[in-house]
Amino acid sequence: MTLLREELGEVLREARTSQGRTLRQVSSAASISLGYLSEIERGEKEASSELLASVCGALGVPLSGVLAEVSGRLAVAESASAPVVLPVVTDRVSASAA
């Protein structure tokens, strides 16, 4: 199972490393501890929306773009696992007759 915090951490790390920036540089710009940012990037900590906004601001990337990337990755991971498809009942009369 893919966890949201793990995908989010990967997306943030990729954004940081693609800019050639260190954890120290981004943590300082975001006003959070280097250790905490590292834990977020490794998917070990759940970050608050305020903290995510601060990290995204420090990286110069929109939070919406980060979340869209995470959403896309989760969708791919979900489609790769064989989900159980449950029947959808569209008519209550049919459901009670069954």
Score class of each variant (00 low, 15 high):
Arg13Thr: 01
Lys45Cys: 00
Ala29Ser: 08
Glu41Ser: 03
Lys45Gly: 01
Ala82Lys: 06
Glu41Gln: 08
Val84Met: 09
Leu59Asp: 08
Ser38Gln: 12
Ser81Glu: 15
Tyr36Val: 06
Gln19Gly: 08
Gly43Glu: 02
Thr17His: 08
Val11Phe: 04
Leu37Arg: 07
Leu4Ala: 07
Pro87Ser: 13
Leu59Met: 04
Gly60Asn: 03
Ser96Met: 13
Ala75Arg: 05
Glu6Lys: 00
Glu10Asp: 04
Ala53Glu: 09
Ser94Trp: 14
Arg24Leu: 12
Gly60Ile: 08
Gly43Ser: 04
Glu69Trp: 06
Gln25Val: 10
Ser27Thr: 03
Ala58Leu: 01
Leu37Phe: 06
Arg24Gln: 07
Gly9Phe: 06
Arg73His: 03
Glu78Phe: 12
Arg21Phe: 10
Leu67Arg: 00
Glu69Gly: 01
Leu8Gln: 03
Leu37His: 09
Ser81Ala: 15
Glu50Tyr: 13
Val85Ile: 12
Ala53Asp: 09
Gly60Val: 09
Leu4Ser: 06
Leu67Gln: 02
Ala15Glu: 01
Gly72Ser: 07
Ser71Asp: 11
Arg24Met: 05
Thr90Phe: 15
Leu52Phe: 05
Ala97Met: 13
Thr22Pro: 03
Val70Ala: 01
Val55Ala: 05
Leu74Ile: 11
Ser18Asp: 09
Val93Cys: 10
Pro87Phe: 11
Tyr36Leu: 12
Val84Pro: 03
Val11Ile: 08
Ser31Pro: 06
Gln25Thr: 11
Tyr36Trp: 15
Gln25Cys: 02
Val55Lys: 02
Gly57Leu: 07
Glu50Cys: 03
Met1Cys: 07
Arg13Asp: 00
Asp91Asn: 15
Ser54Gly: 10
Arg16Ile: 01
Gln19Glu: 03
Glu39Thr: 08
Arg5His: 07
Gly35Tyr: 13
Arg5Asp: 00
Arg16Asn: 02
Leu23Asn: 01
Lys45Ser: 07
Gln19Leu: 11
Val61Trp: 03
Arg21Ile: 01
Val66Trp: 04
Glu44Asn: 13
Tyr36Arg: 15
Thr2Arg: 05
Arg13Ser: 05
Gly57Trp: 08
Ser71Leu: 04
Thr90Gln: 14
Arg92Tyr: 12
Met1Pro: 07
Ser31Lys: 15
Glu50Gln: 11
Pro62His: 04
Arg21Met: 12
Ala53Asn: 10
Ala77Leu: 08
Val11His: 02
Ala58Trp: 02
Leu74Pro: 00
Val89Leu: 15
Ser94His: 14
Val89Gly: 05
Leu37Val: 01
Gly20Pro: 05
Ala98Val: 13
Thr22Ala: 01
Gln25Ser: 13
Gly60Trp: 09
Val11Gln: 04
Leu63Arg: 09
Leu3Cys: 02
Val85Asp: 02
Ala98Leu: 13
Leu3Pro: 01
Ala30Tyr: 04
Ala30Ile: 06
Ser31Val: 12
Val76Ala: 13
Met1Ile: 06
Glu78Asp: 13
Gly57Ile: 04
Leu74Arg: 05
Val55Thr: 03
Ser49Tyr: 11
Ala77Val: 02
Ala82Ser: 12
Leu8Met: 05
Gly9Pro: 04
Ser71Trp: 02
Thr17Gln: 14
Ala80Phe: 14
Leu12Val: 06
Leu4Val: 09
Ser49Gln: 11
Met1Lys: 10
Val88Asp: 14
Ala29His: 06
Val70Thr: 01
Ser71Tyr: 08
Leu3Ser: 08
Gly65Pro: 01
Ala77Gly: 05
Arg73Met: 02
Ser79Gln: 15
Val89Trp: 15
Ala75Glu: 13
Ser31Thr: 09
